[in-house]
């Protein structure tokens, strides 16, 4: 796999995870503050733009690689969330998370070699 392809895979996953978290925050905010405010609208707009970026990058990648090759890379999103939780929530890695993340990483390496 070329560096460019790996770069686009990572960008499409990071934008997807970021969009999910931003939209979730926006929905939580709307539960108490309603939807007719600049904060909610701007967050939803950012979330939708990020989702769209992720979607089209995936579509570009699917033109070049098998789905069975690309799909396992979605496991990387779990690694991003784990890193984010460690940084933002100061969450410690449990043994279960560590083993799971390791298995996913080794699995992705095997797929990328195939």
């Amino acid at each position: 796999m070329s560096f460019l392809a790996f770069f686009f895979i990572v960008v499409s996953l990071v934008t997807f995870v970021a969009a999910q978290l931003i939209l979730k925050r926006a929905m939580e905010f709307s539960a108490t503050n309603g939807m007719r405010n600049a904060y909610f609208i701007s967050r939803v707009a950012i979330g939708v733009v990020l989702m769209t970026v992720s979607f089209f990058l995936t579509l570009g990648l699917l033109q070049r690689f098998d789905l069975s090759y690309l799909y396992p890379f979605q496991g990387l999103s779990v690694i991003f969330i784990t890193i984010l939780a460690a940084v933002v929530l100061k969450e410690k890695l449990s043994a279960r998370l560590t083993i799971g993340a390791l298995l996913i990483t080794v699995g992705i390496v095997l797929v990328s070699m195939s």
Binding site: G100, A101, L102, L110
Partner: peptide, 13 residues
């Protein structure tokens, strides 16, 4: 094999 490892890892986490 890679797919199987990713699936097991995802199920764990």
């Amino acid at each position: 094999c890679g797919i199987a490892l990713v699936i097991i890892g995802l199920a764990l986490v």
